[in-house]
Simulated scan of single mutants.
Amino acid sequence: MARRLPNFSALRAFEAAARHENFSRAAEELHLTHGAISHQVRGLEEELGRPLFVRHGRQVKITHDGLKFAQLLGKAFADIAAATDTMRAAGGNQRLTISSIPSFAARWLAPRLGRFIERYPEIEVVLQSSGALQDLTREGVDVGIRFGRGNYPGMLVVRLMGDVYYPVVSPHYRNGALPVEPAELARHTLLRSLARWTPWLRAAGVALAEPSGGVMFEDLTMLIRSAADGNGVALVRHVVAMQEIASGQLLRLFDIATPSPDEYYFVTPPHAAAKPQVQAFRDWLLEEIAAFQRQQDLIT
């Protein structure tokens, strides 16, 4: 006798709501309304005969039983995604889902990705960009490109490369009256991001406090755009700012760079590591990075 399963859409709505602990973000992920998520979760709770969330207005907190159920559902959805990928591969259509931090995806990976597609036309590439640390297994992602310290429990991790910080400015900033010595930065607008200025200022021998106030840019692309628009001096990572430097939109100030404590990593769930498309992408990416680093050595 076949077992009666809950509505699949309700299960997906609940799993997404549990993962985010927020109905609105679950609705955005599944392209539904907040009301639709709430309705499906309510229906699932009625079918199961127990609450899955504790509600305080529009704020929700998952129950202990709900959390255990969501974890099992997440694993089941990951298994379904893996089985689907296997079937696609057997049919000759290999899908590769890559999740990358936005700055690396837009400024380094995407401009080179065409070469991978030319080499492996049978692989369908899905490139996602996310600044949040995703659960790659639960979300069916084959490869994550992360910027951090390499500590990703349960994942297979390969270091890709490091990066350095240095200040840049538009050639038109203050009508071209640019700082000549690091100490002159005290009289200029220092744009802020999540990367602190203090390590670079110390390396440059500048006794200047960490900038405060003004806009805090969490997205490096927006930080670089603001600097290119002449709004101030920005502390940037080389890998994500080199396009504007090469084009002349930004000028690198001084010959001082500090190594980033975070580095770029190739992160793979164990079940995805053996996929031919994942292995092909990893090998190609390491080749591209080696070529990029050789080119940087020639430039510097």
Rank of each mutant, 00 (worst) to 15 (best):
A78L: 07
N175C: 04
P111L: 13
P111F: 13
S100R: 07
E122F: 04
Y120F: 15
H172N: 13
K75S: 12
F116S: 03
A76T: 11
V143E: 01
M161S: 07
M155Y: 12
M155K: 10
V125I: 15
T86Q: 09
R50T: 15
V141N: 03
N175K: 08
D135G: 10
G140P: 03
L113C: 05
S130K: 08
G144E: 01
D85V: 04
T84Y: 03
G150T: 08
A82V: 09
L127V: 09
I117T: 15
P167V: 09
N151Y: 06
Y173M: 13
M161P: 00
Y166D: 01
I145C: 04
Q59D: 14
V164Q: 06
T97Q: 07
F53Q: 07
P51W: 05
A132I: 11
P121C: 13
E124C: 02
N175H: 11
T137P: 00
G154D: 01
G131H: 10
R88Q: 13
S170L: 10
W108C: 08
I145V: 14
G114W: 05
Y165G: 09
I80Y: 01
A89Q: 05
I98W: 02
R50C: 06
V125C: 10
R50D: 03
E122Y: 01
G57T: 10
R119I: 02
Q134E: 15
Q71V: 08
V164G: 01
N175W: 07
R107S: 11
